[in-house]
């Protein structure tokens, strides 16, 4: 796992406009969206990371999306409208695997 991360890091550079924060494969953290999870590399990255597998997020496909601005799950039609409003739309959000331990009975 660590090796994967190292290889991955060596491919990354900072400050590109085409960074994780607009990448299809990246899921921003549900509460702290400056960090997230790269589904391609299987590791945590920050919004300003970049790698050669970058793929611009789009709302073309019929599926659910996540708006990190509004913290809400969207259907495609909603996703398009959030996208037009320049919200941060992603294909999903990252939730900590042990979040259950932080939740209360409600």
């Amino acid at each position: 796992m660590q090796r994967v991360a190292e290889v991955f890091k060596s491919m990354m550079s900072l400050g590109k406009s085409s960074s994780c924060s607009s990448c299809w494969d990246w899921l921003p953290h549900i509460h702290f969206p400056f960090v997230g999870y790269c589904t391609l590399w299987g590791t945590t990255t920050f919004e300003d990371y970049y790698c050669s597998s970058y793929k611009l997020v789009s709302v073309e496909r019929e599926r659910f999306y996540w708006c990190a601005t509004c913290k809400v799950r969207l259907n495609r039609e909603e996703a398009v409208s959030h996208w037009i409003m320049k919200h941060r739309v992603f294909r999903g959000a990252y939730v900590d695997p042990d979040i259950r331990e932080e939740l209360y009975e409600g």
Partner: peptide, 24 residues
């Protein structure tokens, strides 16, 4: 500077931060 500090944690521990919220 949360993002920078978290980046430092991530780089130092070399491990992916499974529980981001908790670390923050």
């Amino acid at each position: 500077p949360l993002k920078e500090l978290l980046r430092k944690v991530s780089e130092e521990t070399g491990s992916p931060l499974a529980s981001i919220a908790r670390t923050v």
